[in-house]
Computed example of a mutant assay.
Amino acid sequence: MTRPPATKPAARRQQAERLGRMAEAKAAMLLRLKGYRICAQRWKSPAGEIDLIARRGSAVAFVEVKARSHADEALASLGAHQRRRIVQAARHWLAANPDAAQCDCRFDIVLVTPYQWPQHIANAFAADDQ
């Protein structure tokens, strides 16, 4: 009995990278339609990466984008460690952008699932929870 050829790890990473970029593009489009201005995409800091940083009025949203086959899987995939990393990265961004420090900051999630409109969860978690 022969096994199907295994997918190479590099090919899987490339596929995951493409999926992530597509999900982030869909999330950015949704946020723009809701009146947000995208300040940064894939913003990197020593603490980690923030998928999207969006602003609407006096609110700045640090957005984590999760793409899974089901919304509940996507929501469950954001663990405590990842939330802490996002909060730390947001602090780095705020230090680099002092004009935004006076804004109302929050942490949002956009869930991207196949064949459905992305789901935006505003204020999904608080920095104090970390």
Rank of each mutant, 00 (worst) to 15 (best):
E64W: 05
A95E: 13
I53R: 01
K26F: 10
S69V: 15
R55M: 08
V60K: 09
Y36G: 06
A59C: 13
S58L: 12
W93T: 02
F107G: 06
A71Q: 07
V110G: 01
R42M: 07
R32H: 09
Q130P: 06
V65A: 00
E73T: 10
R42Q: 11
R21W: 02
M1L: 14
G57R: 07
T2C: 04
L111A: 13
D72A: 11
Y36R: 06
A122H: 11
S58C: 10
A27N: 04
E64A: 09
K34I: 04
A127V: 03
E73H: 14
L33Q: 11
E17N: 09
A28F: 03
K44Q: 15
A67V: 08
I50N: 01
V112E: 04
L33Y: 04
R3T: 15
K66I: 00
H81P: 02
F107E: 02
A11T: 14
A100L: 15
V110R: 03
A126C: 08
M22Y: 10
D104R: 15
F62N: 03
A47M: 08
I86Y: 00
A28N: 05
M22F: 08
Q102Y: 10
A67S: 13
Q116R: 13
E24K: 01
I50W: 01
Q41G: 12
K34E: 14
F107C: 06
A59Q: 14
A126V: 02
G35T: 01
N123P: 08
A25Q: 08
R85T: 01
T113D: 10
A54Q: 11
Q41N: 05
S77P: 06
D108K: 05
D51M: 02
R21I: 03
A101P: 04
A16C: 06
G48N: 06
Q88W: 10
Q15Y: 13
D104A: 13
A28G: 12
I53H: 02
I50T: 01
P5Q: 09
A25I: 01
D129V: 00
R85D: 00
H92T: 08
Q82N: 11
T7M: 11
A96L: 02
P9K: 11
L52P: 05
R68G: 11
L94Y: 07
I86G: 00
A23S: 02
R18G: 01
L19N: 13
N97V: 04
Q130N: 15
V60S: 08
A96Q: 02
L78E: 07
T7F: 09
Q88C: 10
R68V: 02
S45I: 07
M1Q: 14
R32Q: 14
I50S: 00
R85Q: 06
V63F: 03
R91Q: 13
A74R: 07
F107I: 09
M29H: 14
